[in-house]
Design a protein around this nucleic acid. Structure first.
Lengths: 175, 175
DNA sequence: TTCTAATTTAATCAT
DNA sequence: ATGATTAAATTAGT
């Protein structure tokens, strides 16, 4: 059974139930020709239980059942919160890797290396992983995100400079 | 393939300028170097253009000569004198966007679209922004927060179900 | 106090 | 590798 038909059926059901938002519902339905109705990777494991349907039929989505939670340099804080118990237990039906929490010293070292070399090779990454007690994958992902962040900030500053030039041009003209 | 040629080039350049660059020196440099780990000035392009949309909202906060503002660090002793000064210093360096207050009809439409499609694409977001007279960024942030809220509620209900099952298992066993 | 808009970052996916 | 986007976590306003 294809999952797209189920999605379409859900949409039709939802629209049928509340016909209050007729025009606005078309906003969500009008572009059903592409991409959103047939998601190749449905990243929504919880949205189908709104009408009390049978749960658990979407559990077979890329679940790498090797629970090797190797968060090595972690556990700096221990909040006694009731939500903390099921915060971890609800991660299993999501196929996502648990978010890695880098320590302060790890960030320090990574930032220092980034200032020298933003594109570390495999050897430097392996060395860093061994020294910082992290996986090499995490190192690579961190550098990717760090480069993206740097580019973002560069774009922002450039945009601000252009806008400032505009306002500086328009400002004195008003005097 | 020359996929790592850029990285090699960067490394060679770095080595050329400051000779003898090993992981040791990089790590040592990263340790002793003083830099900002917490940026405290992340992203505020609207602080210098308050004339466009939010008149009178932001004040001229050009000087920020108090970089040692501890926001999250709790200080159990001598907290009375520092409360309003904290409040004041928080308002200084925070460059947040003013909180958007959605109207009732905007919330209605957004909720209606959310019931149909929790992951609207760029086209739907743009359409919504134009119809509701909002920025597309606000639409996206709203859907992000809405999904987080939905997931939170689902987590709570699942936790309650698990806890109920647990007590139902333990209860009759005691008889 | 609760709820939620806003921000940041690790992770994922497509190109 | 890059860009877009998401989830998660946190901050902060009403």
């Amino acid at each position: 059974m294809p999952s797209s038909s189920a999605a379409v059926f859900n949409v039709i059901q939802s629209v049928d139930r509340n016909t209050l938002f007729t025009i606005e519902s078309i906003l969500g339905l009008g572009r059903k020709d592409q991409r959103q109705i047939t998601p190749l990777k449905p990243h929504r494991p919880w949205t189908d239980s709104e009408t009390a349907q049978h749960p658990g039929q979407t559990s077979g989505n890329t679940s790498h059942s090797s629970p090797e939670v190797k968060v090595k340099g972690e556990n700096p804080m221990c909040k006694q919160r009731a939500t903390d118990s099921y915060r971890r237990t609800l991660n299993w039906y999501i196929g996502r890797r648990p978010r890695t929490a880098f320590t302060g010293t790890q960030i320090e070292v990574l930032e220092g290396v980034f200032q020298v070399n933003s594109y570390p090779g495999i050897d430097v990454r392996e060395e860093l992983a061994q020294r910082l007690d992290l996986d090499e994958d995490r190192i690579q992902i961190w550098f990717q995100n760090r480069r993206a962040k740097l580019k973002r900030s560069h774009r922002e500053s450039q945009f601000l400079m252009v806008k400032k030039a505009f306002t500086d041009l328009q400002g004195p003209a008003q005097l």
